[in-house]
């Protein structure tokens, strides 16, 4: 498939923007300026970016604890995300949610929560609303391999299939459920097969190849939008950081989880580097553009931190505000 260069650049830029936003949090976390638990998305950018590009602005997404990338890819404001992570009133959730509760209803980011599997049924509900209203919207629930241990996933697969709901179950398999490798939580590592008994179309996708993600997501979105029912997508990927915060969970360190060789191998499959090489080989990208886009992304992130620094925290007298509408 051939694409407009501007489209390819937009995918590349979005991945860069997500990566730089995530990595900009590392120092402030280590300095104790950011306290909200940040589950960094570095290494998985191709998935949010590819799916985001396949969706319409009016489509819905729901996320999980590791959702900074989903929020940005669907159009959420970078300024408001950084401000939310710092607990500011100008944050997307007005400082009441923190890193794990980003929202942007005007961009279809309907909700993000850290309860594992917590938004799978919610996305099914927004898909149900779309199927009743016949509004043509598609809902996506992003979850990880750890969520495959939760019963509500299977209840939702059954019901979504039964009612042919327009929902994409997007499972980002980064091979670790918090601290446990996938071999310790499942007998069968082929997660994409769990949807088959429910009669659901399913894919296994290289989650570090943004164009493959985009192409398969396009197919899935078309399938859902045309009323054929739900789609299950497993994306194989790897998070560069540990489960939460900047710690890499390397074997031998105090968190002692991941073999250093495994991390090294996956760093070689960095989705941004892979895409960069691909684009350079087709001359869609050269060093000057790479440098320019890197600089722009850095400036945008820096501006978001500046926006945040100029913001204020919620007032103490507003503690009870928003308990009820």
């Amino acid at each position: 498939m051939t694409y407009e260069t501007s489209f390819l650049h937009s995918l590349y830029y979005l991945m860069l923007r997500i990566r730089k936003a995530e990595e900009s949090l590392v120092e402030p976390i280590l300095r104790g300026e950011i306290k909200t638990p940040c589950h960094l998305y570095s290494g998985q950018e191709a998935i949010a970016t590819g799916i985001g590009a396949a969706l319409d602005p009016t489509d819905y997404i729901f996320g999980n604890h590791r959702s900074h990338g989903h929020y940005l890819a669907k159009g959420g404001s970078l300024n408001e995300m950084i401000a939310e992570i710092y607990g500011m009133e100008s944050g997307c959730s007005r400082g009441r949610g923190g890193s794990m509760h980003l929202i942007s209803p005007e961009h279809g980011v309907l909700g993000i929560v850290p309860i594992v599997s917590g938004t799978i049924s919610l996305a099914m509900g927004s898909a149900l609303a779309s199927s009743i209203r016949k509004d043509g919207r598609v809902s996506v629930s992003f979850f990880g391999d750890g969520a495959t241990g939760e019963g509500v996933l299977y209840e939702s697969l059954n019901f979504a299939s039964l009612k042919k709901l327009p929902i994409i179950f997007a499972c980002e398999n980064n091979l670790y459920s918090t601290h446990l490798p996938i071999s310790e939580i499942r007998t069968n590592a082929e997660i994409h097969k769990i949807a088959e008994p429910f009669g659901i179309k399913s894919y296994r996708v290289d989650g570090n190849d943004v164009l493959e993600v985009y192409e398969k997501a396009e197919e899935a979105v078309h399938y859902c939008r045309s009323g054929q029912g739900p789609v299950f997508m497993e994306f194989l990927t790897y998070r560069f950081r540990g489960h939460v915060g900047p710690d890499d969970n390397i074997q031998g360190s105090h968190t002692d989880i991941r073999p250093v060789n495994e991390i090294r191998q996956w760093l070689e499959r960095d989705p941004i580097k892979l895409f960069e090489e691909k684009l350079k080989s087709t001359e869609a990208l050269d060093e000057a553009i790479i440098e320019k886009m890197n600089r722009e992304a850095e400036e945008e992130v820096k501006a978001a931190h500046a926006f945040c620094k100029a913001s204020v925290k919620p007032r103490e007298e507003d503690l009870y505000r928003y308990v009820f509408k």
Partner: peptide, 12 residues
């Protein structure tokens, strides 16, 4: 899942 679906529909 059914309760979650009701909540999700309400969020929408």
């Amino acid at each position: 899942a059914m309760t979650g679906a009701a909540v999700g529909a309400a969020i929408a």
